[in-house]
Amino acid sequence: MTAAPPPSARAGVDVGSGGRHIRRPGRGWRHLLRVATFGLVDLGLSAQERQEANDEAAIRAVLRGNYKVGVVGKGGVGKTSVAASIGSIFAELRRQDRVVAIDADTAFGRLASRIDPHASGSYWELTADKNLQSFADVRARVGSNSAGLYVLAGEPAAGPRRVLDPAIYREAALRLDRHFTISVIDCGSSMDAPVTQEVLRDLDALVVVSSPWADGASAAAKTLEWLAEHGRTDLLQRTVVVLNDSDGHADKRTRSLLARQFHDRGQSVIEVPFDPHLRPGGVIDVNAEMAPATRRKFLEITAVIARFFAARPAGVRHPTGW
């Protein structure tokens, strides 16, 4: 596995006396001016670079215990791409921990194909081994990508199709919790699906993915209403809506209007621009292939989730019953 370039190399981080990291402009005219004057003129970070630094700090914050974020959305809105991207950002910036993406979409989920198409294990291999103890045992049953994100596929690599049920999901999640700090769970499109309801029981954050069009936003709004109607206002307060332009045809006025509507409901809303790298359906690379503007948006989304994690009291999980 090829190691991803360290974030500090991209962000312009120097190591000062005592090993202290000092952030320098890493790009743009500020960086060029500093280089041209041999460091004599240093205007510091731009507002955008300061925001990125703050987001990275939030993502790297110390966490104790296990944390889970679910990703939901109707088919075709880029839900799986969002899940893989968030997981990759977490994994890249939290090298001290292990991060796993879990495919809990029973409708032929494709999460493994966006992270590691060669992943050979699935829920059934993971849960069938009663002697599973070490991380090496688990590692043999999950795939991984260059960012350091692991993935548990939803379908067996060979043989007849097997349908995931809540009991198998729960057993696999318990086993993964022994070795992974953060789990990013790609859910199905229906909130009423038994596996999705099992996932929702102990989430620390939720991402609702929507297209930047009225029909997609309507489906996302219904998801938020479903949470409220089922007494999950706690999770609703830890939910971020992602308006994902998956095909490049979004209308700016419509997108802004939809974002304002979600903001007015009290939701965090982040817009992700169209990125050709996310469209074809191959492996997602948040470093070499993803456009910088897209990466910045996923950095922002991941930071929002990390702040939800940090707000949970240490050692306390949210109630599992509704």
Rank of each mutant, 00 (worst) to 15 (best):
S88K: 11
L258T: 01
R64M: 12
F180A: 10
E125Q: 13
G148Y: 02
P6C: 00
A119N: 01
A83N: 02
V13H: 02
I59R: 02
G70C: 03
R175V: 04
F38D: 07
A219G: 04
F298D: 08
Q51R: 15
G216F: 04
A288M: 13
I270E: 00
V283H: 02
L152I: 07
T80W: 07
A306K: 07
S46R: 11
G188V: 10
A104H: 07
I115H: 05
R317G: 13
M191Y: 11
L32K: 14
A217H: 03
T37S: 11
F108V: 10
G28Q: 11
A107Q: 14
A91R: 10
E289G: 07
R94W: 08
V272H: 04
I102G: 07
R238C: 04
H249P: 00
A173L: 06
L176K: 02
A293Y: 06
N54H: 13
Q51V: 00
V82Q: 02
G266P: 03
V62M: 10
E171S: 12
T2D: 14
V199Q: 09
D204G: 12
V82S: 03
W226F: 13
V209I: 05
A128K: 14
H118C: 08
P7T: 01
V15S: 10
E171N: 12
I305C: 06
A128S: 15
E155I: 11
Q267L: 04
V151I: 05
N287E: 14
R50K: 12
D14W: 07
A310P: 02
P166G: 09
R30K: 10
L32F: 09
H230I: 02
A47N: 13
T233V: 15
G16W: 07
T233G: 14
A306H: 03
L149P: 05
C187Q: 12
G75C: 02
H249Y: 11
T37R: 01
R20E: 13
P292M: 06
F108S: 12
F180P: 08
L299T: 03
C187D: 08
H179I: 03
V72L: 00
G87T: 01
P117M: 01
M191F: 14
S8V: 12
T80P: 06
A104G: 12
A136H: 11
G154Q: 05
S190G: 03
V82D: 05
D234T: 08
R317Q: 15
H118V: 12
Y150W: 11
A3S: 12
S17I: 13
G109E: 07
R317N: 14
P25D: 07
G28I: 08
A147G: 04
T196F: 09
R10P: 02
P194D: 12
N244P: 06
A214Y: 09
R95T: 14
R94I: 07
V100I: 15
P7L: 08
R98Q: 12
L93T: 08
A221L: 05
F274N: 05
R34K: 13
A136Y: 08
A288F: 09
D234H: 09
G44S: 09
E289Q: 15
V142A: 01
D251G: 11
D204F: 00
F38L: 15
G78L: 04
G28C: 05
A228F: 07
R139S: 13
H263F: 00
G76Q: 06
